[in-house]
Write a protein that binds this DNA or RNA. Structure first.
Lengths: 116, 116
DNA sequence: CTTACATATGCCTATATGGGTATATGCTTC
DNA sequence: GAAGCATATACCCATATAGGCATATGTAAG
């Protein structure tokens, strides 16, 4: 089997740095393809192809206006990534280190007083 | 050019569902390869190969113990993903919707009273 | 030192990729 | 309707993949 398609899910779509750049550029608001071409300094067909991938995973949406295509962000498609990675936040966050201490203390008290 | 190597960064490494499964399995603590093979229901060589990728991006670390290799999670390697995706949280979080309202109000007041 | 277990690596194949370049499609304007 | 701008698609290619399978490495035990 080969690698999963880039359009398989948001994880794969976003693994490509260029596509993250596009989303970052769209964070400021709706943009036509041409402007993304300027910002990314990438050829127009490549940008269109990246946009297609992002569309297929629902990370962007298009609106036709005259001969332009205005793309806009749909960050909601990134929620699964956030949800997944969030559970690992404790690995680097001091906030969670403190929480761990508290939970440890609670466990001690629990196993201390009552039966079982 | 082809797709970026899976070992290029955490984004690419984690795009593969099997590798996310491995990390999830390691969230409970250190595990030998054999146990991961059982949990994932995947052949041993494949698991070893996924572990190599995860090692190369720093998402796991190994400890030799007798003939076993005990792998453990290093969630810190996932921080870049969290940092990136976090900025899009406002797209789905009600918390940020409320924040936006507050900021909007502040802007109004500002443009209202003083000069400029 | 030979057998057995735990893990890693090598080789194979089908497949999708991302960029390059040329061209098609779709509006708009004259 | 011809020309021009904005965008999408088609085709080419080198490349790395993920899994299947065989085998190498390394450690422990008889």
């Amino acid at each position: 089997m080969a690698r999963a398609a880039t359009t398989a899910d948001a994880f794969n779509a976003v693994a490509e740095p260029r596509r993250r750049q596009i989303l970052d550029a769209l964070a400021g608001g709706e943009r036509p393809v041409n402007e993304l071409v300027r910002v990314l300094e990438l050829a127009q067909p490549q940008v269109s192809k990246h946009l297609r991938v992002l569309r297929e995973v629902g990370a962007v949406a298009v609106r036709h206006e005259g001969r332009q295509r205005l793309y806009r962000l749909n960050g909601h498609a990134l929620k699964p990534i956030h949800d997944w990675v969030k559970t690992y936040e404790r690995s680097w966050s001091e906030r969670f280190d403190r929480l761990d201490v508290v939970l440890e203390d609670l466990k001690k008290e629990e196993g201390d007083g009552s039966d079982e």
